[in-house]
Design a protein around this nucleic acid. Sequence first.
DNA 1: CTCGGTGCAAATGCTTTGCAATGTC
DNA 2: GACATTGCAAAGCATTTGCACCGAG
Lengths: 147, 147
Amino acid sequence: MDIQAAHDVLTKHLKASGRQRATPERFAVLDAVLESQGHFDAESLYYRLVSNGVKVSKATVYNALDLLQECGLVSKYRFVDSTSRYEKAFGRPHHHHMICLECGDILEFVNEKLDRIQDEVCSEKNFKSQSSSLQIFGTCSRCKKKE
Amino acid sequence: MDIQAAHDVLTKHLKASGRQRATPERFAVLDAVLESQGHFDAESLYYRLVSNGVKVSKATVYNALDLLQECGLVSKYRFVDSTSRYEKAFGRPHHHHMICLECGDILEFVNEKLDRIQDEVCSEKNFKSQSSSLQIFGTCSRCKKKE
DNA sequence: CTCGGTGCAAATGCTTTGCAATGTC
DNA sequence: GACATTGCAAAGCATTTGCACCGAG
């Protein structure tokens, strides 16, 4: 991915706020997010940072993830359990999720018809959409076979 | 609503399991759910039960809500905060949610085109859908006006 | 130099759990 | 009578907070 472009998004967002500061910790979290594949939680990102020798606290990781969500660089989801899941959103198309309740696997899918209908519904209700998340819970093909 | 029909669903589910028992607490929780309007959390349902003179513990309320979700009598959602939200699902059409990030208001909407596309996607991916939840986050019409 | 951000540990709040008592089947 | 379920309080766990220190602007 284009790391520099992502950094620029963050830098611009921080400047635009007028008060928020560009700290090395925030960019370190961003870099770790950019390296990530798929979904992760705050804890695992924290451990990845620490094991890479980056000195950050868990609190800062949570803070930074919220910040990155605000600039659209990460997406945050709540699926079944109590843990929030994140994924990088930079340079990725808008997509949705199918969550297998048996193996916990998460499949992504893109469907532009879905997005179009969402837009329709929003304009009908005069609702300004900022983000959306469709979660389909059920059984994935692999687990279906096993039964 | 048809309270008796809902009781029957629960009774049947309990019998089908072969071991789970029909306790007065479970039916009391079900009755409270049936009386509810819109979304609620476990805590508020618990207080409603207690103030109606029903003797239940919070643990039992959580347990019963899970059970009712299993029989499709309630739906469980996780929106923005850490609290799980529930709503009665008995005799209600499948619907989705728009969540206003400013006032916290939750609007429901039904859209059968959306449901049809979901079915399409599931059969494409050979995924067996059990439930689904589309959440659109943004700003509701009332809050838009205020700005 | 100012005040926003950080690290740490403690606090918070929702939910689950352990265990003895209870009551369904 | 067996054992699933209950109530209670304590434990768990993800996340937030308070506060002294640090460092970006």
